[in-house]
């Protein structure tokens, strides 16, 4: 089953199958100590740059900043939801620690 994934409205949100599923302005706790000096960056999402699927996991690359230390930038791929039988299943992004996957093209 094909799933359409895209970023729309100047990076305001992620569309999964033509429905708005992930929005900017969320606060995510990232497991990405390489992003800044904080053990678990407290990251506000300002712009969504890209979205992709790895198996059943939907991940996004986003621009934002750690509100604890002020570091801005783009962490690696952050999981934002999962696919179950072609349907998007949300994860509670503001309450769970999100494991960041660094890609080959990340610094």
């Amino acid at each position: 089953m094909s799933v359409s994934l895209r970023v729309l409205d100047d990076g305001a949100w992620v569309s999964v199958n033509d429905a708005r599923e992930v929005s900017v302005s969320e606060l995510w706790r990232l497991d990405d100590p390489s992003f800044c000096g904080c053990e678990l960056p407290d990251f506000v999402v300002e712009n969504i740059l890209d979205v992709g699927a790895d198996g059943r996991t939907i991940s996004a690359r986003v621009y934002g900043q750690c509100i604890a230390c002020g570091q801005t930038g783009v962490p690696g791929w952050v999981p934002v939801g999962r696919l179950r039988e072609g349907e998007f299943v949300d994860i509670d992004r503001e309450r769970v620690v999100l494991p960041v996957r660094r890609g080959d093209d990340d610094e």
């Binding site: 359409s4 895209r6 729309l8 033509d18 929005s23």
Partner: peptide, 22 residues
């Protein structure tokens, strides 16, 4: 059509219509 909404909402902007937020 549900699978055409993103496309149409993007196009409607040209005629001054911007789909409000979530």
């Amino acid at each position: 059509p549900e699978d055409e909404r993103d496309a149409w909402f993007e196009r409607f902007k040209w005629w001054g219509l911007y789909h409000q937020r979530n």
